[in-house]
Amino acid sequence: MLRLLTRFIGLLLLAGGFIALIVDGTRSIAGGQLMVTTLRRGASALFPALFQSFQASVENLSAFLWDPVVSTLMLAPVCVALGGVGALLILVSHRESAPVGYGRR
């Protein structure tokens, strides 16, 4: 049951990453230049209050921790982040197959 739920969430995240890729591609074609939605821009547009509280809690935890988080994780494209996490969840939920020599005859 947990494997099914993990695979379903991974599939939804992978689909969300693909949709974000299509949206970024459409914006890039319409604008005539490469336009990529970062995690910071996407999170602040979708969940402004939650993003502000997340930023405040990280800054309260450690003042210098917010800058590396923004410079590394929050500047990643949404399509890469969602697609990567979705693919990772699908791979984790994959059932391991039996070794080749141990089957029925």
Rank of each mutant, 00 (worst) to 15 (best):
L46M: 05
T72I: 12
A76Q: 11
P99E: 13
F18D: 02
L50C: 02
A43D: 09
A98H: 03
I90P: 07
G84Y: 11
L21W: 14
G101H: 01
A98S: 05
Q52S: 15
L13I: 05
T37F: 03
S71W: 04
T38L: 07
T38N: 05
G16W: 04
L61A: 15
P68L: 08
Q52K: 15
V23F: 02
S93Q: 08
L46G: 04
R3A: 15
R95S: 14
I19G: 03
M74P: 10
R41N: 08
P99M: 07
R3N: 12
S62W: 08
A87R: 05
A45G: 00
R105C: 00
Y102S: 01
G86R: 06
R7D: 09
L11I: 07
V69F: 15
G31Q: 03
S62V: 06
G86W: 02
L61Y: 15
R104D: 06
T72Y: 10
F47I: 03
I29W: 08
G32C: 06
P77G: 08
G103I: 02
A43Y: 04
P68V: 05
S57V: 10
V36M: 04
S97D: 13
G16T: 02
F64V: 15
A81E: 09
V92L: 15
L34Y: 03
R105K: 01
G25A: 07
A43E: 06
A20I: 08
F64W: 14
L21K: 04
T72N: 11
G25T: 09
V36L: 12
A98I: 05
G101P: 00
E96L: 11
F54L: 14
F54S: 14
A20T: 01
A63S: 10
L75T: 15
S93K: 04
R104M: 00
L88W: 14
F54H: 06
G83P: 08
L61E: 10
L82K: 08
I19W: 02
R41I: 07
G10A: 05
Y102W: 03
Q52F: 14
P48E: 07
I19H: 03
I22F: 03
L12Y: 01
V100W: 08
E59G: 06
L75A: 12
L39N: 11
G101I: 00
G42K: 03
S62H: 13
G84F: 01
Q55D: 13
G31M: 00
Q33S: 09
L21M: 13
L91Q: 12
S71F: 05
G31F: 02
V92D: 02
V69S: 07
G103A: 06
F18V: 12
G42M: 07
G17K: 05
L21S: 09
L46F: 07
M1N: 13
L34P: 00
R95H: 12
L13V: 05
R105G: 00
L46Q: 14
L39W: 02
R3K: 13
E59P: 01
M35R: 12
Y102L: 09
S62E: 12
V58T: 13
M74C: 10
V78H: 12
F8T: 02
R105N: 00
R3Y: 11
V23W: 03
G101L: 07
G25L: 04
G25D: 07
R3C: 10
Q52C: 05
L13D: 05
I9C: 06
T72V: 11
R95N: 13
L61I: 05
I90K: 10
G17T: 01
E96P: 07
G10F: 06
D24C: 03
L65I: 14
L14C: 03
I19P: 00
R41Y: 06
